[in-house]
Amino acid sequence: MASDTELRAVPGTEPRRAAGSGLARALLRRRELSIVLVAIAAFAYFSAGSYGTAFNTSNNYHILMQYLAPWAIIGAGETLLLICGEIDLSAGFTYTFVPFAFMSFYNQGLDVPLSLVLAIAVAMGIGLVNGLIRTVFNLSSFITTLGMGFFLEGMTYIQSGAEPTTPPIAGGLADFMGGWRWSELVWALVIIGVMQVALSYTKYGVYAQASGGNPLSAAESGIKVNRVKVATFVLTSLFAGVAGLVDQVRVGSFDPTSGGNTMMFMAVASAVIGGTALLGGSGTVVGTLFGAVLLAIIQNGFTLSGVSAYAFDVVIGIAVVAAMLLNVYISRLRRRYLR
């Protein structure tokens, strides 16, 4: 519609044409576009380095995928949760625990498909409990899911005896579940795509934005804010469980030390770097994908460039915070120039 592209002047105020060229305005308008540019710049930087030949190989792209796919899958859920004004700090341990929930059903003699279905149900149950504690008892999601994370970490060790296990999944199902070289990427792209459509083109997406942006207004309009939030907690745990299964089937080992807080942090960081507001109301799922891409490029690029193992986390920590600061700065510019 034409009225969307032309911002008519508000009486009494002059439009800020100083925002400059069409490209600059387009960048400010599409909040995820800026992160795409930063990701491209990072890609160009590491491609151009002396180790660029190692960076630009199919094998290295595969390594990038291994980093970014679970972050993007969990990040898709975290994005919607952040938009709702909530967060799930237990998602990383849901990733760790769900494969062992699967093993516990399998070890009781159930077949693989049924055990998978039950494990997925357990994942969704974790989200349901998170969401109900959050909404029924009005306990902040920060505390609720922090406690759930510890609980799941302990349950993982009990269930696994702190020993890794070889997944009893083989053949076509294993290929589907991450075994095929690029299957994890397909999972990530499909989940990102479905959630972006849900955010932009369904009532659920509008309700999520309203619930996080102004819960009181949403409730006054008759939106069932708590129901929206619980559903989003369930989705996030579901995706965390799927990511845990797919990622660890790919590796060929269910590992009780995998995932955890690092996984959760990278998923949330992907969302925030991708333009999702930490305080709720706005964000995009596609932005989260590119946030994950950027983080994977940084992680992989610094590995190839030979940053010392001791300094590695220092570099990653600074890079993540710098990327978030950049995002906050760009959002502020957006708000100023898009009036």
């Binding site: 009532k203 509008v206 934005q209 309203a210 942006g213 102004n214 207004s217 949403a218 309009s221 939106i223």
Partner: peptide, 19 residues
């Protein structure tokens, strides 16, 4: 308080919960 959601565009506020 107007029951508007700042983050949503005008037309989605106009149709909020009546999309």
């Amino acid at each position: 308080d107007l029951a508007l959601v700042d983050e949503l565009p005008v037309y989605l506020n106009f149709f909020l919960n009546k999309e």
